[in-house]
Amino acid sequence: MAANRNRRLIMWLGMAALALVPPVSLALSQPYYVDLFTRILIFSIAALSLDLIISYGGMLSFGHAVYLGVGAYAVGIADAYGIDSGLFQLLVAAAATAAIATFIGLVSLRTSGVHFIMITLAFSQMIYFLSISVNKFGGEDGMTLNQRGQFGSLIPLDNANVLYYFVFAFLALFLWIQSHLVRSRFGMVIRGARTNPRRMAALGFPVFRYQLGAFVISGVMCGVAGALLAEQALFVSPAIMQWSRSGEIMVMVIMGGMGTLFGPILGAVAYLVLEDVLTGLTQYWGFFLGIILVAIILMGRQGIMSLVYGLRWKSSHG
């Protein structure tokens, strides 16, 4: 229980610290950090969404970046057809990822374990190659957006600070939803299904439908992250859903600490700040990242969350 209280405290402190990024970077006259952290928040949402299915649901999706891509392309394509309503763009992104996630989930959830990892990877490769070949929407070159989504004069996303808090609001919302979701009946069922799906089925829960539900919710959250990434970058390209990107999101979750709600967000901060610093220092930064990653795993996958409050809890093995 103490662990739980500590975790909540870290979450509140962490979110408060993130909320202070724009004023601090203004004070430092370093507006660059607002942009860097906007990106970090977006990847935090992606990591958070992946955490829902891998930590709580035990579904090891190795193609999660595909939802980033679908969400981003939904915005890009809407923009290309002159639809500039931000709300509409986000809704299209959510609907598109919901549809794709439902389809992928329906097929993949028939399998489990390694097969599940591989089939999610296969689907993401499929859509990745599709995005490269569709020349109407830029192909490998990607597509440049005309402008950010419009939310009326109240939320001018062209202002970097407004965009930051806009993304921040989404992160806070998803964090709130997820913290309630995992403690709800729905959350209990998918957690139960991770350790023993047969028992859950015997108890009369339609396990498949619950898992599919979690899979789709996770996909939509990640799709919104993708849409926000498109709004921020005003650019979409297939590189957003390369298979290594799926690996990176997974690394963020693990770096931060699985199943700890705020952990994945800490992981995204750590990973992207590390990347920002290391790429400036060495062209072999993948070498160091690889070693760090192997070390984290060999030391028992204790994410940053466990370091922060000094408590060792064994991550449960699914």
């Binding site: 374990g113 690394v251 070498f287 990242l289 760090i292």
Partner: peptide
Amino acid sequence: RDHLDQVLATFGLTLMFNDLVRI
């Protein structure tokens, strides 16, 4: 360990080796 640990550790190894041959 579970598959997740294996995926991540070997993903890390891949990143490492890809740069090691360049070094």
